[in-house]
């Protein structure tokens, strides 16, 4: 079971990973890759659909094909590779995606605060990360200078 949380609690979810499969399961909660979405009937699918988007993908261009997904899984191949932060902000601020944006890969406690700020709403923590403690990491800072997904105004308009 993945080490999964949102900002409030530990989540108990089970997903069927169809990314490597030739045939996508017809029901249940499934994870698919972007090149599979054209074969998928999002509306007809009986269950939730999560799409994994590589972090070098142009999210704006891709979006029309994945906008019906329940979960968009963005990737951190290494925690220091920060491209998905921008992808998440584009999904929330520009494209208006309202579903779940999930951080996957090398997801560590010390990055959760800014991930959440950029619009991530659930977090597949790396196995060794303590999920209980991770729930405390969303409140590290009370003051936010910049507008982002969690705050529409910069501090200079709230001072």
């Amino acid at each position: 079971m993945p080490n999964l949380i949102n900002t409030q609690s530990i989540l108990d979810e089970s997903w069927q990973d169809c990314q490597e499969l030739e045939k996508i399961a017809c029901d249940g909660d499934i994870i698919v890759a972007i090149d599979q979405v054209e074969y998928l009937d999002f509306e007809g699918h009986n269950g939730r659909v999560a799409v994994t988007v590589p972090n070098d993908e142009d999210i704006v261009e891709l979006y029309p094909s994945i906008n019906k997904a329940d979960v968009i899984r963005l990737q951190f191949p290494a925690f220091a590779d920060g491209r998905a932060y921008s992808q998440a902000r584009l999904l929330r601020d520009r494209l208006g995606f309202e579903g779940d944006i999930r951080a996957t890969g090398d997801v560590l406690r010390d990055q959760l605060f800014q991930m959440h700020r950029c619009g991530f709403s659930s977090f597949e923590l790396r196995e060794d990360q303590n999920a209980e403690l991770a729930l405390t990491d969303f409140s590290r800072f009370d003051v936010l200078y910049q507008p982002a997904a969690d705050e529409s105004l910069p501090l200079f308009k709230r001072r």
Partner: peptide, 14 residues
């Protein structure tokens, strides 16, 4: 002004 904007900018830390 740039200092404040760039301090802990959530998108540009990595």
């Amino acid at each position: 002004i740039i200092r404040q904007w760039s301090t802990f900018h959530p998108e540009f830390t990595y």
